[in-house]
């Protein structure tokens, strides 16, 4: 019995052991970008304990919304801007930071800055298309063709900024009611409304589908990795969205947080955009991503930053049964 109590005591002690002077970054970037971030952090700040916690954008926002400023994160990056808008009162005022690295007009809020702008397009499995002799879709209407049954994946507008961007774009093009009708029909061809924005591209890589409605950057990354894919821009242009980053209110006074934040903005941020998310938001951005389509035109994204529009459209999405 005594041994049991000793063991118990020891285990309970272990639960208390955790360093508290670490800086925690919540990042909603993909694993690969997180890996690079960790490596660069280790190089730049070898004496600091900076923890990068990978967390899906919805989870990240949910945690902050629920826990408020006592959340463990000090800095939050790559959070869907619409989510950020919703919870921005938990973030510190950034007016003391120099964001001149950005193009004018990109940052419009006090509590957060833009992390990346990302466009989205159709990414198709070229090999599958050739093998099955399929036509390449050029419009949203084309996607309704019977030959694409169960071959398309789209992120769920409720949980993904990418999905929401597609939806908002169709609403701006077709009007609210027609857009809902459209998606009701498109559902026939949809294999899955994925939770995350990278879901469709992942399914494409797995060979589960042939058309992904996903982020251009991810499609290009897959192509560069050897997948036989192709980026297809619809006639109506490329929908886009942004993610944001900020400091949790109160943490800007914490030691080293300012330094890390500034580095994130000016150094890693630039690297990240140039190498992974090349849509231009910085003044001096030299994109390094091979094969990134250079002549994408913006689709109609009126209202992308509006919380009230999002609320309204989210309610409308319910009618699509999905």
């Amino acid at each position: 019995m005594k041994k049991l109590w000793c063991l118990l005591g020891f285990l309970i002690l272990l639960t208390g052991c955790a360093k508290d002077d670490s800086i925690v970054i919540y990042s909603s970037m993909e694993e690969e970008r997180n890996q690079v971030l960790k490596e660069q952090l280790a190089n730049k700040f070898p004496d600091l304990d900076v923890v990068v916690q990978a967390i899906a954008t919805g989870n990240s926002a949910a945690k902050i919304k629920s826990e408020g400023t006592s959340v463990e994160a000090d800095i939050v990056i790559d959070l869907e801007t619409a989510h950020m808008e919703d919870i921005k009162d938990n973030f510190a005022n950034l007016s003391s930071f120099d964001d001149s690295i950005y193009l004018d007009g990109v940052n419009t809020e006090d509590n957060y800055f833009t992390w990346v702008k990302y466009t989205m397009n159709l990414i198709i499995d070229e090999e599958y298309f050739q093998k099955h002799n399929l036509d390449i879709p050029k419009t949203y209407e084309d996607l309704l063709k019977k030959e694409y049954k169960n071959l398309i994946a789209m992120p769920d507008p409720k949980t993904s900024g990418t999905g929401y961007a597609f939806f908002l774009n169709t609403v701006n093009i077709m009007g609210e009611d027609k857009a809902v009708e459209y998606f009701k029909k498109l559902k026939e061809n949809i294999r899955e409304f994925t939770t995350s924005g990278s879901g469709p591209t992942n399914l494409l890589k797995q060979g589960e589908i042939a058309i992904a409605m996903g982020m251009t950057a991810q499609g290009v990354e897959a192509i560069n990795a050897g997948y036989n894919f192709k980026i297809v821009e619809l006639k109506t242009g490329s929908p886009y969205n942004t993610t944001s980053f900020g400091i949790i209110k109160g943490r800007e006074e914490k030691e080293n947080v300012r330094e890390v934040f500034e580095w994130l903005m000016n150094d890693f941020g630039k690297f990240d955009k140039e190498n992974y998310m090349p849509d231009i938001i910085l003044k001096d951005q030299n994109n390094q991503v091979k094969n990134y389509p250079s002549n994408l035109k913006d689709a109609d994204m009126t209202g992308i930053d509006s919380v009230s529009v999002k609320e309204k459209l989210t309610e409308m999405w319910e009618k699509v049964n999905g």
Binding site: G58, A62, T159, S160, T195
Partner: peptide, 11 residues
């Protein structure tokens, strides 16, 4: 439920 909470933060 998961999508409502995670996606829309609607507890």
């Amino acid at each position: 439920l998961y999508k409502e909470v995670i996606g829309l933060l609607d507890f």
